[in-house]
Simulated assay, not measured.
Amino acid sequence: MTEEITFYTNPMSRGRIARWMLEETGVPYHTEVLTFGGTMKEPDYLSVNPMGKVPAICHGKTIVTECAAICAYLADTFPQAGLGPRADERADYYRWMFFAAGPLEASVTLKALGFEIPQERLRMAGCGSFGDVMGTLEKAVSAASPYIAGKRFTAADVYVGSHIGWGLAFGSIEKRQAFVDYFGQLSERDAYKRATALDEEAAKAMQAA
Rank of each mutant, 00 (worst) to 15 (best):
T2L: 08
E4G: 05
I5G: 04
I5S: 04
F7N: 09
N10G: 11
P11G: 12
R14C: 13
R16P: 03
I17G: 03
M21A: 09
E24L: 07
T25S: 04
P28G: 03
E32A: 10
V33W: 01
T35W: 00
T35V: 05
T35Q: 12
F36L: 10
F36K: 14
G37Y: 03
T39N: 08
M40I: 00
L46K: 13
S47F: 01
V48Q: 06
G52N: 06
I57S: 04
G60N: 06
G60V: 12
I63C: 11
T65A: 09
A68N: 04
A72L: 14
Y73W: 13
L74N: 14
L74W: 11
A75D: 08
D76P: 04
T77V: 13
T77I: 05
Q80A: 14
G82L: 10
G84V: 02
P85C: 11
E89G: 01
R90V: 15
A91F: 14
A91V: 14
D92R: 15
Y93T: 09
Y93C: 09
M97N: 07
F98W: 13
P103Q: 08
E105A: 12
E105H: 15
T109E: 09
T109C: 05
L113Q: 15
F115N: 07
F115C: 07
F115W: 13
E116N: 10
I117P: 01
P118V: 14
P118E: 10
Q119Y: 06
E120F: 09
E120V: 13
R123K: 15
S129C: 08
F130Y: 15
F130A: 08
G131V: 06
G131C: 03
D132C: 00
D132Y: 06
V133R: 03
V133N: 05
M134P: 03
T136N: 02
L137T: 02
A144N: 08
S145I: 02
Y147S: 00
Y147N: 00
A149R: 00
K151W: 04
T154C: 00
V160I: 12
I164Y: 05
G165Q: 06
G167F: 00
G167C: 09
L168C: 03
L168G: 00
F170T: 14
S172A: 07
E174M: 13
Q177D: 15
Q177W: 00
A178G: 09
A178Y: 10
A178P: 06
A178F: 00
G184V: 11
Q185Y: 01
L186E: 06
S187V: 10
A195T: 06
T196S: 12
E201K: 15
E201I: 02
A202Q: 05
K204D: 08
K204Q: 13
